[in-house]
Amino acid sequence: MRVYGLNLAELFLEDFLAGLGLILILFAIASRVFAGVFGVDGFSGGLVVATAALAGLILILASTGIRQNHAALDLSYLLFALAALGWLAHGILVGSWPAVLAGVVMLLLFGLTIYLRRLAIQARFKPRFFSLRQFETMIQIADTMIETNGQSALHPIEVAIRADHFLAGFDAVVKEDIKRTLVIVEWLLPLVIWRPFPFSSLGSHERRRAVEKVIGARGIFRDVARFLKLLAFAGYYGSPEGMAKVGYLPFEERERSKGVSQVPQQYPDPFSPGASQ
């Protein structure tokens, strides 16, 4: 199994988020100290300061593992966006230009974090069929569906890559349904277990619980479960590693193939004039 370390973009993103988080916390403290300058001395001002501080804290937490802490990362992005909009709105309402400026800077930084996160994912994968988000979903689907008790022959990322490349190789009506399924899985499936987070941000047990729910269902959710099985198994059991794991032996390595002519056979037309029947 291949081990996947952080790439350069991910390393930068981790450091960037940690630094950004610290700056946000320091800014929250400073703005409270100079409350008059930023106009944050009332209740709503306290709220935007607290939001900025909390966003900074969660960003630092998320930066400790941008692959593992999906939920923290999503939450920190959400809080950061709220803080930026909050500062902007608050600044306009109380007529504080420093607060407006802070809000604008935060929005710009938020845009930068989004861009960097996208860059970090793109640097890892170049999906041919899935979108980046769908690819993230696919990785978690593979991790959920291929439950191996530690005996997996293939990393879920490899499974996702194989499924992605497979689907990119042909035209089929069902491919649109597969894309739709991944959107449903990412955004709606967690709701069946009352988790308002994307599927790819859930922990392994929660993901498993969500999938179990649809296995027992009928109608559209049954299709979802079918597609999950298809995608995960295609990527895993369609790989040489997965095949070897279950005991499949390539033909070239079997006794029967030894000494047997593998030269392609030719078939002359038996009905052509002069052909001997």
Binding site: Q151, F233, Y236, G238
Partner: peptide, 22 residues
Amino acid sequence: PLVFSLGLGGWFLTHFRRMMRY
């Protein structure tokens, strides 16, 4: 294995254990 796995009933670890008996 791939087509076999899609035709083999079961999910999660149950399915994997069956596949290990391919």
